[in-house]
């Protein structure tokens, strides 16, 4: 026996129930931050999980490609910055793209190196096929690495700064004195700066940049800072220690600098 008062229109009641619940939920989601956060979080939880897994997978697959692309981009930016200095003065009015380009940058990776020997070596994973030639400069994002000495089709051997035969021409920034970087074993963070005359007014902390006198490195690459200055009795030159800005032990991604005007310069210097 059913009470007629309890038996209303079922659907009508259910719709009313749903409407009231929806109002409640709208209130909850609009005014209660916790539920709002959870709602957004939950709705993103599943899709977000799948998306992140998928993109992780893609990233891993494309890792090499991405890395390669980044290095190329970096090389392009470096190239632009070097060439800007070179062209600023001479080719301002002359918008000749052929003349504008003085340096070409080739990205490469160090695939073998030593840092604890007297004559350290590094090997790059690219060779003449990638356009690397003998006597090209090698840098990384923080400073100098060395100079290419030997090349075959796939690899290049580099004499790094931390090799006793390495000689790099540098400037004391803003003071104009130029000297030569030589290495004395075995501290790979420290390098000697020679040929700075006694009368030069230098201080510890002065910045050392490349001079651009040779055809190997463009002018103005930050090399390091002066750490110690000693006077050797009877000598006309300071004995200066320079701390390298980059850590050669950690260097991995490097850029080989090709000087497109090398031949022209060497021709007149003969």
């Amino acid at each position: 026996m059913r009470n007629p008062l309890l038996a209303n229109n079922k659907l009508y009641i259910f719709v009313l129930f749903i409407i009231l619940e929806i109002i409640s939920f709208v209130l909850i989601i609009n005014y209660n931050n916790k539920q709002k956060d959870i709602f957004l979080y939950s709705s993103n939880l599943f899709t977000g999980y799948i998306n992140s897994k998928y993109s992780n997978l893609l990233q891993y697959i494309n890792l090499k490609k991405i890395n390669e692309k980044l290095k190329k981009d970096n090389a392009f930016i470096l190239q632009q910055s070097f060439n800007k200095n070179a062209t600023k003065n001479y080719y301002k009015k002359l918008k000749d793209t052929l003349l504008e380009k003085e340096f070409n940058i080739i990205p490469a990776t160090i695939c073998n190196k030593s840092i604890d020997k007297r004559n350290n070596r590094m090997t790059l994973d690219k060779g003449s096929d990638a356009g690397i030639k003998k006597d090209m400069g090698v840098i990384d994002a923080h400073g100098l690495i060395g100079v290419v000495r030997k090349v075959n089709s796939d690899f290049a051997s580099v004499v790094p700064l931390i090799n006793t035969v390495s000689r790099v021409s540098v400037l004391v920034k803003n003071k104009g004195y130029f000297g030569i970087l030589e290495w004395e074993p075995y501290d790979y963070r420290k390098i000697k700066l020679t040929s700075i005359p006694k009368h030069a007014n230098i201080e510890t902390g002065d910045t050392i940049i490349t001079s651009g006198f040779s055809t190997i490195f463009p002018k103005g690459i930050f090399v390091g800072t002066i750490k110690e200055i000693n006077l050797i009795r009877g000598s006309n030159y300071y004995d200066i220690s320079v701390y390298l800005n980059n850590n050669l032990a950690l260097a991995e991604n490097v850029y080989v600098i090709e000087n497109l005007k090398k031949d022209l310069k060497e021709e007149v210097e003969k």
Binding site: L6, S24, F25, L27, I28, N32
Partner: peptide
Amino acid sequence: DSPGLHSSSLVFLAFMRR
């Protein structure tokens, strides 16, 4: 200070009462 929370549960109770 929890708009909708108690009303939601109480509406549910009222709905289920029958």
